[in-house]
Computed example of a mutant assay.
Amino acid sequence: MARQLGMGLNTILRFSRATTPEELFTGQWQSRATKLDAFKPYLDQRWQEGCTNAWKLWEEISEQGYPDGYSSVRDYVSRTLRGKPQPGGPRPPSARAVTRWILPHPDALTESDQLQLKATLANCPELETLARLVRAFAHMLTRLQGDQLPA
């Protein structure tokens, strides 16, 4: 059986003697300390604060002295943190959604889209300026007022 499965004889014997599934997953590697252990509380805190980008988390702990590569952080995030609930609150709209709200004429938006755009623009003055400039440019194009462009 060990030969057919490509496993060691002791592994096959341990599996055959196991009475519960938990007994199958015992081994030295499961409780071994890793270099990431010291940084896990920080990673957990940052995850709860809303930072869910594994690369960004790796960069942050690298600056704090984490000596290993990105893959360990990525694995920890995907196996452990992705199952934990993220902080509540609405997600910010995507760039595509904001573009879809800014580019058409304001009257062409649904009431829901108008409310979302208003909330988004209230939270970001740069987007407010962008929306104003886009609307001014559209007004010039539709009214054929190119002669009013600054020289």
Rank of each mutant, 00 (worst) to 15 (best):
residue 118 K to S: 15
residue 87 P to D: 06
residue 112 S to K: 01
residue 1 M to S: 06
residue 4 Q to M: 05
residue 79 R to G: 12
residue 126 E to P: 03
residue 31 S to Q: 01
residue 79 R to H: 15
residue 134 V to K: 03
residue 20 T to V: 08
residue 40 K to M: 11
residue 19 T to Q: 14
residue 55 W to C: 12
residue 149 L to N: 04
residue 148 Q to L: 09
residue 136 A to F: 05
residue 95 A to S: 11
residue 49 E to I: 04
residue 64 Q to F: 01
residue 12 I to E: 02
residue 146 G to L: 11
residue 57 L to G: 03
residue 52 T to K: 10
residue 23 E to M: 08
residue 12 I to Y: 06
residue 77 V to L: 12
residue 117 L to E: 07
residue 142 T to C: 06
residue 134 V to E: 00
residue 125 P to Q: 11
residue 103 L to T: 13
residue 56 K to S: 12
residue 3 R to D: 14
residue 131 A to K: 03
residue 39 F to E: 04
residue 135 R to P: 03
residue 82 R to S: 15
residue 104 P to K: 09
residue 74 R to V: 07
residue 126 E to C: 07
residue 65 G to H: 02
residue 24 L to S: 09
residue 52 T to C: 14
residue 90 P to G: 11
residue 14 R to M: 04
residue 6 G to D: 13
residue 20 T to G: 04
residue 124 C to P: 00
residue 15 F to S: 10
residue 30 Q to P: 01
residue 44 D to E: 15
residue 65 G to T: 06
residue 126 E to R: 13
residue 86 Q to W: 09
residue 58 W to S: 03
residue 106 P to K: 11
residue 37 D to Y: 02
residue 59 E to V: 07
residue 101 W to R: 03
residue 35 K to Q: 13
residue 121 L to D: 00
residue 138 A to P: 02
residue 87 P to S: 11
residue 119 A to C: 02
residue 1 M to K: 04
residue 52 T to P: 00
residue 147 D to T: 05
residue 114 Q to D: 02
residue 117 L to G: 02
residue 60 E to K: 04
residue 90 P to F: 13
residue 31 S to A: 04
residue 10 N to K: 08
residue 150 P to N: 04
residue 24 L to G: 01
residue 50 G to Q: 09
residue 79 R to D: 14
residue 27 G to R: 03
residue 2 A to W: 06
residue 39 F to M: 07
residue 42 Y to W: 13
residue 123 N to T: 11
residue 109 L to K: 03
residue 149 L to T: 02
residue 61 I to F: 12
residue 29 W to M: 02
residue 59 E to C: 11
residue 34 T to A: 09
residue 133 L to D: 15
residue 12 I to A: 07
residue 45 Q to D: 10
residue 148 Q to H: 05
residue 133 L to S: 14
residue 112 S to C: 03
residue 107 D to H: 06
residue 40 K to I: 12
residue 51 C to F: 03
residue 57 L to K: 02
residue 134 V to G: 01
residue 27 G to E: 08
residue 54 A to K: 14
residue 53 N to G: 01
residue 103 L to W: 06
residue 118 K to G: 12
residue 134 V to F: 07
residue 28 Q to G: 05
residue 77 V to R: 08
residue 10 N to Q: 10
residue 74 R to C: 06
residue 150 P to V: 03
residue 93 P to D: 09
residue 121 L to W: 00
residue 126 E to T: 11
residue 38 A to D: 08
residue 46 R to Q: 10
